[in-house]
């Protein structure tokens, strides 16, 4: 890929990203302004009876809630342009810091779930397709369909009951042990706390990956070039490694990168069930308690994250698939 083509591609992507971010923030802001949640009421909570109407108005004025929504949005957008994401109302910290702390929890959780579902799903799907119609194929499909129809929060509760309550092997919640000083928390502690949410998050992902991989590999196995490869004496693992893996690796990778958006959605539920202090939980809190700056920050951040995943899939194809590479290497011109 030459520099001009590369530059053009990057500029196009940037413009798309900017318009996406603008659209997402406008829609989110509009939805929040129409939502019935009164931020002041949500903030005061149970002390509502003790706070007078005047005080409430003062709080609203302090937050700028007395102004019309369009004006509030423009002020927020102006601040964003200067890199100021504002302060979270519920955590009373800058939004950037709240996201920064929680991002690492979510990132490790999602990365673990992403890798687990990707690897297990790919292996299961490949095994099923290579034994198409056999007993292994049917059992893998059966398990996948069962898992696919299992809600992840229910699976999370089930995991909690078995591993945290009955067996007591793993902690039931939080990102770190409660009542332990921060400097005494080990990486092992963090991993132990991450295991159950990661399992809940990845198990439902496995079935989608496995079924997609299986279908894709079956299409590949039905192709002319597999027939020819078999006619040349290739079979079994050799056939899979030479032609199967090669032809399903790319679609599988791009599917996996594009699935980051679903992973984000799943993380919201999984973190809620396991009271895991990640971005998903913060999103739920911000939404329920009308914390507009935090919610907007989270939405922008997750948009960026998902966009990065999709772009990575796109770029990967261009770099790896010989059919998508630039034409300067195309020797047909000779």
């Amino acid at each position: 890929m030459g520099a001009p083509g590369w530059l053009k591609y990057a500029c196009g992507k940037l413009i798309r990203l900017a318009s996406l971010l603008a659209a997402v923030s406008i829609i989110t802001f509009a939805l929040i302004s129409w939502s019935p949640i009164d931020p002041v009421q949500a903030y005061i909570g149970a002390d509502m009876m003790k706070v007078g109407a005047e005080q409430r108005e003062e709080i609203a004025a302090y937050w700028g809630l007395d102004q019309p929504p369009v004006e509030r949005f423009l002020r927020w957008a102006g601040a964003i342009m200067q890199g100021d994401f504002g302060n979270s109302m519920i955590y009373r910290e800058p939004v950037v810091e709240v996201i920064g702390q929680r991002f690492w929890y979510s990132l490790t959780l999602m990365a673990a779930a992403w890798l687990l579902s990707g690897l297990f799903g790919f292996a299961a799907g490949s095994a099923a397709a290579m034994n198409r119609g056999g007993r292994l194929d049917r059992s893998i499909q059966w398990v996948c369909h069962t898992l696919a129809s299992t809600p992840s929060f229910w699976l999370g509760l089930l995991l909690l009951m078995v591993f945290a309550v009955w067996l007591g092997w793993l902690p039931a919640g939080l990102g770190v042990p409660a009542g332990v000083a921060a400097e005494h928390i080990t990486i092992a502690d963090r991993i132990r706390h991450m295991l159950l949410p990661a399992a809940a998050l990845s198990i439902t992902g496995i079935s989608a990956v496995a079924l997609h991989t299986r279908q894709k590999l079956i299409n590949v196995l039905d192709s002319d070039y597999i027939l020819y490869a078999r006619a040349k004496g290739e079979r079994g693992w050799q056939l899979y490694r030479n032609h199967g893996l090669r032809n399903i690796a790319l679609p599988a990778m791009s599917l996996q990168l594009a699935s980051i958006s679903e992973l984000f959605g799943g993380a919201v539920l999984a973190e809620q069930v396991f009271t895991y202090p990640g971005l998903g939980q913060a999103t739920v809190q911000a939404g329920l308690r009308g914390d507009v700056p935090l919610l907007m920050g989270l939405v922008l951040f997750s948009t960026l994250f998902v966009f990065a995943g999709n772009t990575a899939a796109d770029v990967l194809y261009r770099l790896v698939d010989p059919r998508m590479r630039g034409y300067e290497h195309d020797s047909r011109i000779v």
């Binding site: 070039y225 030479n242 090669r246």
Partner: peptide, 9 residues
């Protein structure tokens, strides 16, 4: 025909 060749090899 050419479809009998592995497109990625």
């Amino acid at each position: 025909s050419v479809t009998y060749l592995d497109p990625l090899m």
